[in-house]
Amino acid sequence: MTHEELKNTLTAILPSSSFDETGEFLTVIVPSEDLLPFMTELRSNTGLDFDYLFCLTCIDWKDHLMMVYHLMSKTHKHALVIKAKLTNREDPQIETVCHIWRTAEFHEREVFDLFGVKFINHPDLRRIFLDDDWDGFPLRKDYVDENMIEI
């Protein structure tokens, strides 16, 4: 599908979504509470069929966290970026997508480990790289550590 067709289809699925076309991929910004039904529809809708989650990460924009999902369809060969804003920095929570794309299980654990985002209904939400008793979330911009050096 082209960007225009994708936009039309996606607006029909979730009217509250907004688009951003500045980057390489078409970007959809969805409210975090609508994420799970929206993602489920993306995967199950045969016209869209986003079966391949090739990147899942998070960005710390200082006042909020932004979840970023890079999706691609192996059958239709179109790609899409979904973003969900998490305004609560103290206790960011979002639904897991790991039963839709199994690869999300590891990637969500990584995001939990390094950003502290809690994924609701994740089967095994533990730190993946760091020790279980690690303090803080290193990839956040406000993270400080006694061993950090100013460059």
């Binding site: 090739f54 990147c55 990460t57 960005i59 710390d60 890079h70 199994r102 690869t103 299980e105 590891f106 990637h107 990584e110 990839l139």
Partner: peptide
Amino acid sequence: RIKYRSPGFSNLS
């Protein structure tokens, strides 16, 4: 922010 989507990470999963 920079993110490396490394192949080994997903393959291992």
